[in-house]
Write a protein that binds this DNA or RNA. Structure first.
Lengths: 243, 243
DNA sequence: AGTTATTTAATTGTCTGGCATTTAAATGGC
DNA sequence: GCCATTTAAATGCCAGACAATTAAATAACT
């Protein structure tokens, strides 16, 4: 654990990198306690505040957790999928907005990835996944639902579909693509007719999944993609004409 | 920008969250300068070191960048795909290793996602993408190549395939799935026969891509998946018997 | 002896105040 | 008008201190 005096990066960044590398390489293992802040400042020959800044950097990435008190300290954190989800979603969301990714591009990515789960999900989905999807369809058909709530339910529906593939890695990767689209989806106002069409496609999709019909799932998803894309396109068009 | 005194989270975490929320909500826009550390400590009523810890947290997520000097300060950073790549890969890698995800599960996720790009890539790949893939195939067939270099070339090959889809969102999501597998792949020793088989499949794949033959690409990828999975399985088996 | 209350020590969380370094802009000299 | 110098604002870093938390050691009491 050494640092390069010729680097022009912050000391705290260098120290964070050093510790991060040790974690990635397996030099530091899960739940292992790091030296105390005082010991670290000795080892790296920097002040305690600088060490603390480095530790906060790692904490921001969920690589460590800290505990106060006598037996406290910083511990290598077991990065769980649950913990990684929100970060993945935040990053994806910001990537879309800051890089002005078009609705079409984001939508294409989302459905392309999602359709890839169709085969596995049709094969492995449990009754539980199906039940969640049916429940969300029911919620979506309730009158008086706000557009935001409708979108949130849509996300939950699609997440159940993806989770049906029974592959946590797949679920994790998809979370970013699906949930990051929510801000974009929220820009659309869904008319009653739009909702009915979407619910119809969702029902077709759930039926196909129940029948273990992968092709049917794929077709329904393709339908959803084109319907959503066209909807967004017409919304943008209207907005343009108004302005 | 207020903080909750009843929260049991660190002050620096609360402040970081407050600023992060402002960025996500669009309250702070790209390249906008944050108040100076002194001003922030006044606003949040905390000391400068605490503010600094908060800023380091945000820097660790590439949400801000800092600049020294007279007109310096912390600026909202435009999160680019290039910047987000390494973080995505690091997180994915740690998720796989820390959660003891099996080779099969990771492999399935990777090829499932990758196959989803086949259609788009067969449609849109440029000559450039093809050239990269051919070049990597050539590298892979060179004798004396280490297993690590072989794997690295493999990653580059597949990245060109994914990039061929011409969708940056897709490329970003795939990076995590493909590159995070490298440590797992590096556990395999590739015999000359293995390499020949993989190169053969890569060639088939490149040919199909050149002919805009999506089905061919998909078939080749399926072949790669089953071959890789079986290879890993036999390696694990041998290792088991030895021990 | 066993249980409870108290003390102690270790550790993180936070603050104060200061100095060093960097950088752009203001100033001054030519 | 141009170049060198100074100045001011900002981050980077440090030293030392105190508060808060927590588990373990100790003491007190039954």
């Amino acid at each position: 654990m050494k640092i390069d005096p010729n680097s022009n990066a912050d000391l705290s960044a260098q120290i964070a990198k050093s510790i991060r590398d040790a974690i990635i390489s397996g030099d530091l293992i899960v739940d292992q306690r790091l030296p105390s802040e005082a010991e670290l400042s000795d080892q790296f020959d920097v002040s305690r505040p600088t060490v603390r800044e480095a530790l906060k950097r790692l904490a921001a990435q969920s690589l460590i957790r800290t505990q106060r008190g006598a037996t406290g300290g910083a511990f290598v954190n077991k990065l769980s999928f649950e913990e990684a989800y929100p970060q993945q979603i935040t990053t994806s969301t910001l990537l879309l907005s800051m890089n002005a990714v078009s609705f079409e591009t984001a939508c294409e990515a989302r459905y392309t990835l999602e359709r890839s789960c169709a085969l596995l999900s049709a094969l492995r989905r449990t009754a539980d996944h199906l039940a969640t999807m049916r429940a969300e369809i029911h919620r979506q058909s309730q009158p008086g639902l706000t557009d935001e709530a409708f979108c949130a339910s849509d996300v939950a529906f699609h997440r159940a579909l993806v989770d049906g593939a029974g592959n946590p890695v797949l679920s994790y990767q998809l979370a970013g693509a699906v949930e990051a689209m929510q801000p974009l989806m929220n820009m659309i106002t869904f008319s009653a007719r739009d909702r009915a069409k979407i619910i119809e496609l969702h029902t077709t999709l759930a039926d196909a999944l129940e029948a273990n019909n992968a092709t049917g799932v794929d077709t329904a998803l393709a339908g959803l993609e084109s319907y959503t894309t066209n909807l967004a396109k017409s919304v943008m068009e209207k907005r343009k004409n108004k302005a």
